[in-house]
Amino acid sequence: MPDTILVVVEQREGKLNRVSWETITAGQAIAAATGWALEAAVVGSSASSLAAEVSAKKVAKVYAIESPKLDPYTPDAFAAALKQFLDSKQPKLVLMPHTYQVRDFVPKLATAMARTVISDCIGFKYEGGKLVFTRQMFQGKLAADVSFTSDAPWFATFQNGAFRGDKAEAGASAAPVETVNVEIPDVAIRTKPQEVFKEAKQSVDLTQAEIIVAVGRGIKEQKNIEIAKQLADALGGDLAASRPICDSGWLPMDRQIGSSGQTVAPKLYLALGISGAIQHIVGMKGSRTIIAVNKDSEAPIFEIADYAIVGNLFDIVPALIEEVKKAKG
């Protein structure tokens, strides 16, 4: 039997999380490089209906791993269900998206199987029969190629955006779906999750903004936010921030951009003193034009910037405000 890659897709309230398609694309690419077979699995209380959706993609088989105990999500139930399945199935490689949910249960699952997870990968290489995964290190300043030194099953998770979900190939015909019922004892589930909720309604909607001036920790002090505000006003744009700025209460939470804040795609995103951690980038990389001002020429924000200004924002911003005002007359 050939080696198998298993992609575990993610669902939320009965809907596939779109990032799952990216992981399917990744799985297809690794399958093409290695010659391994590709299968997929959906885990949940109503996995079968979603499995049908996944079976339209080019995969050899889709498993619907079901139990009433899988709803609502708990790390205990998910790890137990997948461990049962993987113990019998023994795939070579298990792939998942690096979502908050996966981070919550996959290290537990792998540990229960005495295995390891190469987490938050952005790519892979298959060289001379060896599979390595690329991941960011030191907050994106460096990258590393990482290999497994232990027995399969190997676990790897992929960062949001690492592969294109719309590139997931459709299959010639629907893949067979097999329902797998797993037994999860009540005592195995130790946590009791409550309803998911959103904090007080957002009063600022930055998703429609055309120009955003975003400040990061490079702004140093709360009182300095004022110069960013002046620049935003001069440009007729909105003010936004990285997480630490909102955590400190310097700007309200609803101005936070990133994985735990808003996702925006303005015509112009001006990043002032923002390092460019991936959790920030996912919230703004869709911007048409990105201008970054940072004193560190190696700041990861420059990797996605269209225009880079290496320098002190306290020198650049006042000059820019003046020039914009002049231009607007």
């Binding site: 295995r115 460096l142 880079a308």
Partner: peptide, 25 residues
Amino acid sequence: ENLQKIERLYVPEKTKKTEHIEGPP
């Protein structure tokens, strides 16, 4: 033994063409 190993660490390759704007402020 470690179950995973860093084979190589490096400065990430740039994927986007970035234009540097230089000079006095």
